[in-house]
């Protein structure tokens, strides 16, 4: 099987998992008064879950452009870590143009799947992983945006769980196999909870909370469980 086809196959479950989540995004955007084609445009150009949910709710609630840009950016800083991590796994001497295309498709899910690959990541393999999730994300958005008026409110509210359910489906099986990974995830949750609830330190935006929690938990992991399970 070519490496593109191999990637394509790995992208199928991600693409299907994106449908309920992007469906929710489409619903949310249209309920907030945006047109369906704007919702699809956001999905085609952003291809991200939390960042575009946050940015779009700010567009809807009348946030200023700097506010929208900064919030989206802060939530997306985690991609710098993923991109850095992938830079260590791609084939040496990948041309810049290929990096430019490939990096557009880095998401929590495509990154997680590509990270688990033993061999070096080639351009065609990564392109394969990205392709179906990209169209799945746009297609789900279109469905959600079109179905908005047909669905009862209770069901629309229930779909808010989809994004989180997908995160849980990614992190739990991996944490079962590694005590270190589980500990790092739990530390990140504990820090994020403190930054959310403890007086005086709960004033940061949730995007900053996620960056701080991630960085501190990874430093903790690297210090307490060094290299043990790397590679």
């Amino acid at each position: 099987m070519s490496s593109f086809n191999k990637g394509l196959k790995l992208g199928i479950p991600i693409a299907m998992g994106y449908i309920p989540v992007s469906f929710t995004f489409g619903l949310m955007a249209v309920q907030g008064g945006l047109s369906p084609w704007i919702a699809v445009l956001i999905s085609l150009t952003n291809l991200t879950s939390a960042g575009q949910f946050a940015g779009t709710s700010l567009i809807i609630s009348g946030g200023t452009l700097p506010e929208i840009t900064l919030t989206t950016f802060v939530i997306n800083i985690r991609y710098m870590l993923m991109s850095l991590s992938l830079s260590q796994k791609i084939v040496p001497n990948m041309p810049l143009a290929e990096k430019a295309v490939m990096s557009f498709g880095i998401t929590d899910e495509t990154f997680s799947v590509a990270s688990l690959e033993k061999e070096d990541i080639t351009f065609s393999y990564m392109l394969g992983i990205i392709t179906l999730p990209y169209f799945g994300w746009a297609f789900g958005t279109l469905l959600g945006a079109s179905a908005s008026s047909l669905l009862p409110q209770d069901l629309k509210d229930s779909m808010g769980i989809a994004l989180y359910a997908m995160f849980i489906a990614l992190v739990v099986p991996a944490s079962k196999k590694s005590k270190a990974a589980l500990t790092v995830a739990v530390v990140a949750i504990a820090i994020n909870s403190m930054l959310t609830w403890v007086p005086y330190i709960n004033s940061l935006s949730s995007g900053w909370d996620i960056i701080i929690s991630t960085v501190v938990a990874c430093i903790f992991g690297a210090a307490v469980f060094p290299a043990g399970e790397v590679d």
Binding site: L170, A185, I189, T214, A217, C218, G221
Partner: peptide
């Protein structure tokens, strides 16, 4: 870098 996916997903 290895721990990033776990930490990010936990915090998200």
């Amino acid at each position: 870098l290895y721990y990033i996916p776990y930490a990010v997903l936990g915090a998200m």
